[in-house]
């Protein structure tokens, strides 16, 4: 009996049907819940916050502008995080005791601290000392936080390339730097791309936290709009959807890129 039910659930049409039922139930539940609260849905006002067509012509809305800031912030932070992460990984792999100790201490320090606390530390403590504004404090915070995780991705990717490649490169007279640049890192890329994409998605999402120091990115824009319009449901749904669209595009794009790499070698 139970086996029969399980078999039925495993079949494709039944899975699709079940999935649709679950989605419907969740949607229904939130709608009836909102109705019970007497919530007044105003979805028609949302497109205005994405873009507007006025007499002056086309204009981007607040959410779109916030998204641009989020992307800018994420890209800048990711570039710094990657550079810092690579340095950390190389330090750790350098074979120098000092290098390893510094890298491990950094890693443990960052990994065991909440992102929010790190942000406060940088903005309220380091900020006044070094004259950091909101934006640069945010970039610094995200870069430092994610560099620790990225360095582990680099380390794993570098270690995944066989020792024979090192020996071959060294035996033709390459320096350690040349080995990394021409032989090891190009081969590590295919091992590092999938987890790095995951990390980029993670970074975009954690960039929302800088709304607590009022950097005008997507989440901050959402909060401001809600305090103006009281449309919490619509705005938060929209903001969530925008994050999702961006991160999905990123994931799909990188998957394509990976396939091309896989064909090449």
């Amino acid at each position: 009996m139970l086996g029969q039910i399980l078999n039925l659930v495993r079949s494709r049409p039944a899975s699709v049907a079940l999935y649709l039922i679950i989605v419907y139930l969740i949607a229904r539940l939130s709608l009836t819940g909102a109705e019970a609260m007497g919530y007044n849905w105003q979805w028609y006002r949302i497109p205005d916050y994405l873009y507007r067509l006025t007499d002056d012509g086309f204009q981007w809305g607040e959410i779109a502008i916030g998204l641009v800031t989020t992307i800018e912030l994420s890209v800048t932070s990711f570039v710094f995080a990657t550079a810092l992460g690579l340095c950390l990984a190389l330090l750790r792999l350098s074979g120098l005791l000092v290098g390893t100790a510094v890298a491990v201490a950094y890693l443990e320090f960052i990994r065991n601290m909440p992102l929010l606390v790190l942000l406060y530390l940088i903005y309220y403590v380091l900020g006044p000392i070094f004259g950091l504004n909101r934006y640069s404090a945010s970039v610094l915070c995200l870069a430092i936080y994610h560099s620790a995780l990225i360095s582990e991705i680099f380390r794993a990717g570098i270690n995944a390339v066989g020792i024979g490649q090192w020996e071959a490169a060294k035996s033709i007279g390459m320096s350690t730097g040349q080995c990394y640049r021409f032989v090891i890192l190009p081969q590590s890329v295919k091992f590092m791309l999938p987890p790095l994409t995951g990390e980029a998605v993670h970074l975009i999402k954690s960039s929302a936290i800088v709304s607590v120091i009022a950097v005008a990115e997507l989440t901050t824009v959402g909060r401001n709009l809600i305090s103006d319009t009281y449309m919490s449901f619509e705005i938060w749904f929209t903001v969530a959807a925008v994050y999702m669209v961006v991160t999905l595009i990123l994931s799909v794009g990188v998957t394509r890129l990976e396939r091309r790499y896989a064909v090449k070698t």
Binding site: G162, G164, Q165, E167, A168, I172, G173, Q187, T265
Partner: peptide, 17 residues
């Protein structure tokens, strides 16, 4: 020294990329 000494390995160790 390595520039003057070539080495051939059991496992070839060509650069696959």
């Amino acid at each position: 020294v390595r520039m003057e000494v070539g080495m051939v390995f059991q496992q070839f160790n060509l650069f696959p990329h």
